[in-house]
Design a protein around this nucleic acid. Sequence first.
DNA 1: AGAAAATCGGTACCAAAGTATGAAGTTATT
DNA 2: AATAACTTCATACTTTGGTACCGATTTTCT
Lengths: 155, 155
Amino acid sequence: MEVDKGLRHILLYGLVMAGLILGLKWLQWNFLIVENAIDLYIGMIAAIFTVLGVWIASQLIQPKTHTVVVEKEIIVHQPKTFVLNQAALESLQLTKREYEILQLIVQGYNNADIANNLFLSLSTIKTHVSNLYSKMNVKNRYKAISLAKKMEIVA
Amino acid sequence: MEVDKGLRHILLYGLVMAGLILGLKWLQWNFLIVENAIDLYIGMIAAIFTVLGVWIASQLIQPKTHTVVVEKEIIVHQPKTFVLNQAALESLQLTKREYEILQLIVQGYNNADIANNLFLSLSTIKTHVSNLYSKMNVKNRYKAISLAKKMEIVA
DNA sequence: AGAAAATCGGTACCAAAGTATGAAGTTATT
DNA sequence: AATAACTTCATACTTTGGTACCGATTTTCT
């Protein structure tokens, strides 16, 4: 494509040149150019070839490419990957055990299961859970679960 | 800026022209151009002004801008819009009341709240809830909530 | 070393959740 | 009209969850 265009231009230029030379020859022999009229003749040639040069340049100048970046939104129905909200977790001032138990509560374990899981007595779990609720300012596991998820402190 | 540049070019062009004319005059009077050498002379002028034309054009012609649009993909995480899984819901064979109560349970209501909400007695709610759990094959509300959400039968 | 916090455990008590069973009225469906 | 399913309510009971105390270690921090 580019090469074809270049070739076409070169051929066109050659033909225009040939035509002009012939035209000039004709002018030269038929109009008995006087010595004093040589300036006018040269001026004509200068003007014609200037215009030719302008035309050539206009053909050869490459267009500037202007890149426009358009943002295309891709909506993905994908669960947000869990990122622990460290600040929120610290704001609750939970102990390690309390946080550990909270995570088990979120997973749906009951107190007895948690006790067995951690090799602790049921009373201990109850104590921890109760303290946990106090710190979270909730009154039952369901509220604790919702809050913990909303605060992004559990997966 | 644009105007200044245009003016500069016009002045430059004038000066170049003046210089060329002087040069040509000098060539004309000092080299005793023979009649037969007129073709060479004209050729020179043609070439010089062609180049001049190209130069002028290259300076003045604004390159055409070719706009290229590039799409940049941006992933947007959007919470899944709830779509009821009708088939899953029907597979449980819940009654209207049971499903209604399930929805309230998912929203975190306790049995007493549900009773007040539906203007029913606590015993009635307990009965419905118990039957509901039997059909869902779970033993408490937390499991019922997780299952209902997993089955996509509640928002 | 001493104080404070965290951990573990217990008892007692109450509230809520859940099960089992029965009964009576209503609504569909054949 | 008869049957089945649904709805409502009640009683009695068991389990689980939650609170309020308490005491005894262990760990952490100053």
